[in-house]
Simulated scan of single mutants.
Amino acid sequence: MTATLYLIRHAPHDHLGRILSGRTPGIPLSDDGRGRARRLSAALSARRFASIWSSPVQRARETAREIVTGRGLGVQVDNALDEIDFGDWTGKTFDTLAVDDQWAIWNSARGEALTPAGESMSAVQMRVVTFARTVALAHPGEAVVLVSHCDVIRAALAGWLGLPLGNALNFDVDPASVSRVAVGDWGARVLSINEVFA
């Protein structure tokens, strides 16, 4: 049996595009982000979900809470969906990172590069793909939402597509976007990437 996973990137927040927020607490969705999360929820309202999971990071949990509205479901949180641990880069502006040689290596060789005192992309891929498979096998024939973060979703999709992690930047995962994957005991098949409804 096959489950369909809806991998959803959280909606926008005020640091988006300016600061590498990472796992920094206390960063809510922006006004625009809340509106986009509500529109995404409306776009998905006809779809039935067996469960809705979220990263523990606030912006992801807020996005997930919009999606569960009116469904009689709660949001389940799991650390496997957490943002990448960016270590010493957390909280730095992208302008500051742009002159960091290690940041340039991270963006050109994701499969081999390391974050400073943080997490590798391969470790991210392993935790999210393992979790996604476990959830999928627990929900045969059903659909499940996993709300996470851009590069976490990219890492998972690259794994399912058989792409090296160095190619994970070759496709977009926009805020409030949906990427769908069919997962079963036979493996996984990517159905869509970066569907934007909001």
Rank of each mutant, 00 (worst) to 15 (best):
D88R: 14
T130S: 15
L146K: 02
N167G: 14
F94Q: 04
G72N: 03
V178Q: 02
T63D: 00
G91P: 09
D14M: 07
A104R: 15
P28W: 01
Q76E: 14
W106Y: 07
F197H: 10
L44A: 07
L16G: 14
L157H: 02
R18W: 05
P140V: 01
N170I: 12
P28N: 01
Q102K: 12
V196L: 04
V124H: 03
G35W: 02
A46Y: 05
L146D: 04
D78L: 05
R61S: 01
L137C: 06
W106H: 01
N107I: 04
I84A: 08
I8W: 10
E119L: 00
E83F: 11
A155P: 11
L165S: 12
S21V: 13
R110K: 12
R48F: 01
R133P: 05
L7D: 03
D31M: 15
R180E: 12
H149G: 04
I193E: 01
R154F: 00
R127E: 15
R38L: 12
A156V: 00
V152R: 01
P140L: 09
L97K: 00
R189A: 14
T69H: 08
G111H: 06
R39K: 05
I8A: 09
F86Y: 14
H15V: 07
L161G: 05
S179M: 03
R23V: 13
F171G: 02
P116R: 06
